[in-house]
């Protein structure tokens, strides 16, 4: 009987971790998995292949759960999303086949290292993102007309209609292919790359980008899921708990997203992601026996790097704001 209670508690604790990941994933548009995989491997001691499997499943849940809210508010652009899915689904196939080969070669450290790099790399598009809610106007190009990239939405915070015209569709497709590869490879939605593709390449407004990305993530993850399933990367007990957890988290997150400003979102996500990114990177190097260090030292390094990164970013942003005010 006691063992049953332990197992119930184990289920609930995974569910709780999933909920935390879901809130962050939905606020950032990255999908809950970006936080979930490091959480499950580093703090729960779950093997990386089960972590990525649970994460891919949870990615679909968090995407569908929060996208149902966004599409109802007419912010996400489904048309642009479907068009870009050509590249992400193709990429996801390539990515999940690669991961099968990596596991068969017993080289799972590669996944940790890649995960760390992708996590830290997710920060770059966010740093370079302009602080304004509306993108600078760009001249529509030939892809705007052919691929019908114009749209509009009502911003509840600014209390006005915002219309936009996407550009450079081809560049977004190229970025989306790599987003798909990363998704299949690491079991995440790779929302950061999707955001990069739509925000930076296509010049869409931030809200449209994050919500459309959230909707696309589910389709990308569904592509890899079946390959993961037959390869046995999905442990039903873990995947079931995280799926329920992230949906609860994503629901809370989507409520928050419509209320808080982009600036707040960025700081929460910077600090947590940079810590987890460094931690995953070090764990991978440790597993590859390139850099063998004790866990406590590993954590201290991660915290130190995270603090330095966040302070640097914070100061840079403040200076930018002051420059804007002075002008």
């Amino acid at each position: 009987m006691t063992s049953d209670i332990t197992l119930i508690l184990r289920f609930l604790s995974i569910l709780g971790g999933g909920a935390m990941a879901g809130i962050l994933g939905s606020l950032t548009g990255l999908g809950g998995a970006t936080v979930l995989v490091p959480l499950l491997t580093l703090f729960y001691g779950i093997p990386i292949y089960f972590a990525t499997g649970a994460s891919l499943i949870s990615t679909i849940a968090t995407s569908a759960g929060s996208a149902s809210g966004y599409t109802k508010h007419k912010i996400a652009n489904i048309k642009i999303g479907v068009g870009l899915e050509i590249a992400t689904t193709a990429g996801a196939i390539v990515g999940s086949l690669t991961i099968v080969a990596v596991h068969e070669a017993h080289a799972s450290w590669i996944i940790y290292v890649l995960f760390g790099i992708v996590l830290l790399g997710s920060l770059i598009p966010t740093i370079q993102r302009s602080s304004s809610e509306e993108p600078l106007k760009r001249k529509p190009d030939w892809t705007t007309r052919i691929f019908q990239l114009a749209g509009e939405y009502y911003d509840t915070k600014l209390k006005k209609k915002i219309s936009y015209e996407g550009v450079r569709w081809w560049l977004a497709e190229i970025i989306m292919f790599f987003a798909g590869v990363i998704s299949g490879l690491l079991g995440i939605g790779s929302g950061a790359l999707k955001v990069l593709g739509m925000d930076w390449a296509m010049n869409l407004p931030m809200k449209v980008t994050t919500t459309t990305s959230n909707f696309m993530i589910g389709i990308t993850a569904a592509t890899g899921s079946s390959i993961y399933w037959y390869e046995g990367y999905i442990q039903l007990f873990i995947a079931g708990a995280t799926a329920i957890g992230v949906v609860i988290g994503a629901y809370i997150g989507s409520r928050l997203l419509l209320k808080i400003t982009n600036k707040n979102i960025r700081w929460i996500f910077f600090s947590i992601l940079s810590f987890l990114g460094v931690e995953m990177l070090l764990e991978g190097l440790d597993k590859a026996k390139v850099l063998v260090i004790a866990t406590t030292i590993e954590e201290m390094i991660s915290i130190a790097v995270a603090i330095i990164m966040i302070s640097g970013l914070y100061l840079k942003t403040r200076r930018g704001e002051r420059a804007v005010k002075a002008a």
Binding site: K79, V82, E85, T89, I93, L97, I219, T223
Partner: peptide, 26 residues
């Protein structure tokens, strides 16, 4: 919208190729 009909067909093809064809190929 012919262009987008074609594009959604490509997406569906990719999805079902990954689901049905690849696992048996592996």
């Amino acid at each position: 919208n012919r262009l987008y009909i074609a594009m959604s067909l490509i997406v569906l093809f990719n999805l079902f190729f990954a689901m049905l064809a690849i696992p048996s190929l592996i």
